[in-house]
C-alpha cells in the first residue's frame, strides 16, 4: 500500500513538473493565467482596493463630475462624480461572476443532454440533436438578445438568456465524446459488471471526456463576458447604478468626446480580461491536443 502511495506521489510530482515545463514553453498562456489570477484577486478584495467603495454602489457627488484622472481619482470620475477606479474594480466582480455562472449553467444544461444523446443513441439522439440544430441556426448573440428582451431587463435574465443560447455547443461536444467512448472496452466491462446506465454515463464517460470540455469552457469565458457586456450596452443586462463595464461604456457615450477616460478604462479592463481567457484557452487547446503541441 505504502509503495503504491509513493509511486502515486512521484507521478504527481512528475506531472506538476510537466505542467511547469509546458507553461514555460508558452509565455502567452502563462501571462493569461497571471492576469486572471490578478483579476480574481481584484474581484475578491475589491472593498479593500477600491478607494471609494460606496461609489460603486451608486453614491453620487455631482460637484466632482467628470474630473480627469489624477491623484485622488486614478481613472477620473463619471458624470455623477463617482470614482471610476472603484467602479471599474467592482466591475471585475460582476464580469467574472457572470462568466462563471453562465458557463456553469450552460454546462448544467448541455452536458446531461449530450451524454444522453451520445450514449443512448437512436431516437433520443435524433430528437436532442435536431433541437440543438435549431438553437445553433441563430447567429450568436441574437437569441440571447431576444430572450433577454422578453424576460425583462436585468442582469440575471441576461445571464439566463446567454446560457439558453450557449448550451447546444456543449451538447454537441460531449455527444461526440460519448459516442467514441462507449465503444471502448472499459465501458463494455462496466456494462458487463452490471453498472447502471446512469453511473456509466456520469462516472465513466463524463470523467473521461473532461479535457475538451475544459478547453471549450475556458475559451467561452471570454465570449460570455463580451456578450453580457454587449447586452448591457444595449440596455438589456445590468441596470444603473450597477458598476458593469458594458453599461459604463453605454452611459459614457454621451460624455466620452470631452471625457475620454470615462470610456477608455472600462474598455481596457474588459479587453484585457477577455484576452487573458483567450490566451489560456488557446494554450490549453495546444496542451490537450498532441498534434498542436509544440515541444
Amino acid at each position: 500500500m505504502i509503495a503504491f502511495k509513493e509511486t502515486a506521489e512521484k507521478n504527481m510530482n512528475k506531472k506538476a513538473g510537466y505542467y511547469i515545463y509546458l507553461l514555460k514553453k508558452s509565455p502567452l498562456t502563462t501571462a493569461g493565467l497571471i492576469i486572471i489570477g490578478i483579476l480574481v484577486a481584484l474581484a475578491i478584495f475589491a472593498p479593500l482596493i477600491a478607494p471609494y467603495p460606496q461609489d460603486a454602489a451608486g453614491i453620487t457627488h455631482v460637484s466632482e463630475k467628470l474630473l480627469p484622472p489624477g491623484a485622488s481619482h486614478l481613472f477620473g470620475t463619471d458624470e455623477l462624480g463617482r470614482d471610476m477606479f472603484s467602479r471599474v474594480i467592482y466591475g471585475t466582480r460582476i464580469s467574472l461572476g457572470v462568466g462563471t455562472l453562465v458557463v456553469c449553467l450552460s454546462l448544467a444544461i448541455g452536458v446531461p443532454l449530450g451524454l444522453a444523446a451520445g450514449y443512448a443513441g437512436g431516437i433520443i439522439d435524433e430528437v436532442i440533436m435536431r433541437i440543438t440544430d435549431i438553437f445553433l441556426s441563430f447567429p450568436p448573440m441574437l437569441l440571447a438578445i431576444v430572450i433577454a428582451t422578453f424576460l425583462g431587463r436585468n442582469l440575471t435574465n441576461a445571464m439566463i438568456a446567454i446560457a439558453i443560447s450557449w448550451w447546444p455547443w456543449y451538447t454537441r461536444l460531449i455527444r461526440s465524446e460519448a459516442i467514441s467512448l462507449k465503444q471502448r472496452p472499459f465501458i463494455e466491462a462496466a456494462k458487463a459488471m452490471g453498472t447502471s446506465r446512469f453511473k456509466i454515463m456520469f462516472r465513466h464517460i463524463l470523467i473521461n471526456s473532461w479535457s475538451p470540455i475544459i478547453v471549450q469552457a475556458s475559451m467561452d469565458f471570454g465570449s460570455v463576458i463580451l456578450t453580457s457586456a454587449a447586452l448591457s450596452f444595449l440596455g438589456l443586462g445590468a441596470q444603473p447604478p450597477q458598476p458593469e463595464w458594458g453599461l459604463m461604456l453605454n452611459t459614457s457615450r454621451n460624455y466620452f468626446l470631452t471625457a475620454p477616460w470615462y470610456s477608455v478604462f472600462p474598455g481596457i479592463f474588459m479587453f484585457i480580461t477577455v484576452l487573458a481567457f483567450n490566451f489560456v484557452g488557446d494554450g490549453l487547446r495546444e496542451f490537450m491536443d498532441p498534434k498542436l503541441r509544440r515541444l
Binding site: A229, G246, L249, R253, F256, S263, G267
Partner: peptide
C-alpha cells in the same frame, strides 16, 4: 487573438476618439 477579444463597441468609441 486580439481581434476576437476586442469589445466591438469599445473599439468603435476609441476609433471615434
Amino acid at each position: 487573438v486580439a481581434g476576437v477579444s476586442f469589445p466591438t463597441f469599445w473599439l468603435g468609441m476609441i476609433l471615434q476618439l
